[in-house]
Simulated assay, not measured.
Amino acid sequence: MTLASWPQTFAGGRDEDEVLVEWLRANYATLSTAEKRKAVKRLHTEWGYTDRGLGDLLGVPASTVRHLRASDEELERHRLSQRVSNGGVSRISGVRVRRLADAWQDRASKGLSPREAVQLLDEFRALVPDHSA
């Protein structure tokens, strides 16, 4: 199900934002980045969800939500500033990688579901500057 086809009528008088959060959480692992970005931006702009609050609801870090809702222009500015500041060489903070690994250690040792694997990859991608543009 895509964001364009998600239900517009809500049973039991539930608010539209609650249904959108539930839909996003249930389908997070199978959604494209574009679909995630669209839903996150909508929740942020129309209902005032914070990066941390939405991250908590989705089970992802606030940095992942911030990355998803950033505009293409903001992402490009960040990419360019990273290129200038480090001579075009991607650098990842060892401390941030260690924290990410530590946070996932227990879950990974028990095996990751497809949704958890996608979450882990999204979190890791948020650490790495994208110089492909």
Rank of each mutant, 00 (worst) to 15 (best):
residue 38 K to A: 11
residue 103 A to D: 14
residue 2 T to V: 07
residue 124 F to S: 10
residue 81 S to H: 13
residue 90 S to Y: 00
residue 113 S to L: 09
residue 19 V to N: 09
residue 132 S to L: 12
residue 71 S to E: 14
residue 62 A to V: 03
residue 16 E to S: 13
residue 37 R to T: 14
residue 96 R to C: 07
residue 6 W to H: 14
residue 50 T to L: 06
residue 119 Q to P: 01
residue 132 S to V: 03
residue 25 R to I: 00
residue 121 L to E: 15
residue 26 A to F: 07
residue 66 R to P: 00
residue 56 D to G: 13
residue 105 Q to K: 05
residue 38 K to M: 10
residue 93 S to T: 05
residue 121 L to M: 15
residue 100 L to A: 06
residue 52 R to T: 08
residue 9 T to C: 08
residue 104 W to H: 03
residue 84 V to F: 08
residue 71 S to P: 04
residue 17 D to Y: 14
residue 111 G to M: 00
residue 24 L to G: 03
residue 62 A to Q: 07
residue 54 L to Q: 05
residue 132 S to E: 14
residue 107 R to I: 07
residue 92 I to M: 10
residue 6 W to I: 13
residue 119 Q to A: 12
residue 27 N to S: 05
residue 116 E to I: 00
residue 67 H to Y: 11
residue 79 R to Y: 01
residue 115 R to N: 12
residue 52 R to Y: 01
residue 97 V to C: 03
residue 125 R to P: 00
residue 21 V to Y: 03
residue 123 E to H: 09
residue 17 D to V: 05
residue 64 T to C: 13
residue 78 H to P: 01
residue 6 W to E: 13
residue 33 T to S: 05
residue 25 R to Y: 12
residue 28 Y to M: 04
residue 79 R to A: 15
residue 40 V to E: 01
residue 30 T to K: 11
residue 101 A to T: 10
residue 9 T to N: 06
residue 40 V to W: 02
residue 58 L to S: 02
residue 26 A to K: 11
residue 44 H to N: 12
residue 114 P to W: 02
residue 133 A to Y: 12
residue 82 Q to S: 12
residue 4 A to P: 02
residue 16 E to W: 04
residue 125 R to K: 10
residue 97 V to K: 11
residue 103 A to Y: 03
residue 81 S to L: 15
residue 70 A to G: 11
residue 89 V to H: 07
residue 129 P to W: 02
residue 60 V to S: 08
residue 22 E to S: 15
residue 62 A to R: 10
residue 104 W to A: 09
residue 90 S to K: 08
residue 26 A to G: 11
residue 35 E to Q: 09
residue 128 V to P: 06
residue 25 R to D: 15
residue 85 S to N: 14
residue 38 K to S: 09
residue 76 E to R: 09
residue 62 A to Y: 03
residue 6 W to G: 04
residue 106 D to H: 02
residue 84 V to T: 09
residue 36 K to R: 13
residue 98 R to S: 10
residue 89 V to C: 06
residue 13 G to F: 08
residue 11 A to F: 11
residue 71 S to G: 14
residue 131 H to Y: 08
residue 88 G to F: 11
residue 103 A to S: 15
residue 15 D to S: 12
residue 10 F to Q: 15
residue 80 L to P: 02
residue 71 S to H: 06
residue 45 T to G: 01
residue 101 A to H: 00
residue 115 R to K: 08
residue 33 T to K: 08
residue 30 T to D: 15
residue 105 Q to Y: 01
residue 122 D to S: 07
residue 87 G to N: 09
residue 64 T to Q: 11
residue 123 E to K: 06
residue 48 G to D: 10
residue 95 V to E: 12
residue 64 T to I: 04
residue 127 L to K: 02
residue 31 L to K: 06
residue 86 N to Y: 10
residue 72 D to Q: 09
residue 18 E to A: 15
